[in-house]
Amino acid sequence: MTMLQERLDDGELLLWEPQLPGDSCGRVLFLTKEINDEFDPDVWTDPNVALRYANLEADFDRYVSGWTVPVGLEPYSKGDNAFMARIDPIEYGMWAIRSVAPKPALRVFGAFYQRDVFVALLTRCRKDLGGPGSREWANAREAAIAKWDCLFPSRKRLFGDELNVYFSEKALTV
């Protein structure tokens, strides 16, 4: 049994199922229980949160349903349209899904377990992260690393310099 299957069986991870059908795609997204719980409308205190999380659902669907994903391999020189981007320092193997609309924008911190398999570990509002290289970014990155290490104690995060290390298809560098 793989570590992923063990985490699914014990409820620490959940498999994201697309809300709408899309093209066939081999990408898989796992969420921590904490992220999944954020989709529970009973915990929302602001009615605008429903729209925010509906858009995050659409973003998650975009990843698993076969849409072409714009990817920023360089943390500080990526296109504004990057859907996913590596986080500095890149050798840590941490990434963020950039859910930008509507405001407030969200960042979903995570890492690749293997090619086409992303594990979403935690979310943060972009406005709470400060600027590039800020202590807030570092704290979020380190919290995500700690979460990974708890879930997968002996497993390294996927790391490489080329897009095809992470994606088998339908991804482009921006």
Rank of each mutant, 00 (worst) to 15 (best):
D9W: 03
A146C: 01
Y92C: 04
V49H: 09
D88G: 00
M84C: 07
V28H: 07
E136I: 01
T32E: 06
Y92F: 07
A120S: 15
S65R: 15
K103H: 13
L4Y: 04
F167S: 04
G72P: 04
V49D: 14
R7C: 09
D128N: 13
R52A: 08
A101T: 15
C125P: 06
L122D: 13
K127F: 13
R126W: 13
L73W: 11
R62T: 13
K33F: 03
D88E: 14
S24W: 06
W137C: 03
E142W: 06
L106Y: 14
L20N: 12
F159Q: 15
C25H: 06
D37V: 00
V64M: 02
F39Y: 13
L121R: 06
I90K: 13
P132W: 12
L122V: 01
S65L: 00
G160K: 10
E57N: 05
V43Y: 08
N36A: 15
P89C: 06
G130E: 12
L73P: 04
Y63G: 01
L122I: 03
F60K: 03
V64A: 04
G26A: 09
E6P: 00
G130W: 13
K127A: 14
G26V: 03
A101S: 15
A58Q: 11
L106C: 04
R86P: 02
N164L: 03
W67S: 10
D88P: 00
D128E: 15
L106W: 11
R115C: 11
D128W: 06
P18M: 05
K33N: 11
V69W: 06
A58H: 09
K103T: 14
A82H: 06
G110K: 04
E12Y: 01
A120H: 07
Q19L: 06
P41A: 09
A82P: 02
W95Y: 11
L172G: 00
A58N: 08
K103I: 07
N81C: 01
F152E: 05
G22W: 09
D161F: 07
P132Y: 13
W67C: 04
I97Y: 12
R141A: 08
D149G: 01
A111T: 05
W16A: 04
K156P: 03
Y63K: 01
K33H: 12
A105V: 04
N55L: 02
P153H: 12
Q114M: 05
D128C: 02
G160M: 10
D59I: 00
L158E: 11
Y166M: 05
P70R: 10
E17L: 02
G93W: 10
G26H: 06
A101W: 14
F109Y: 15
R124W: 10
A50W: 03
Y113F: 08
G72V: 05
M84L: 13
S99H: 09
D149T: 05
S99Y: 10
T68R: 06
A120E: 08
M3S: 12
L129I: 06
L129F: 07
N164M: 05
W148F: 03
G93P: 07
D116P: 02
A96M: 04
Y53H: 11
A82S: 15
E136M: 05
L8Y: 08
R126L: 10
M94H: 06
D42G: 00
P47K: 11
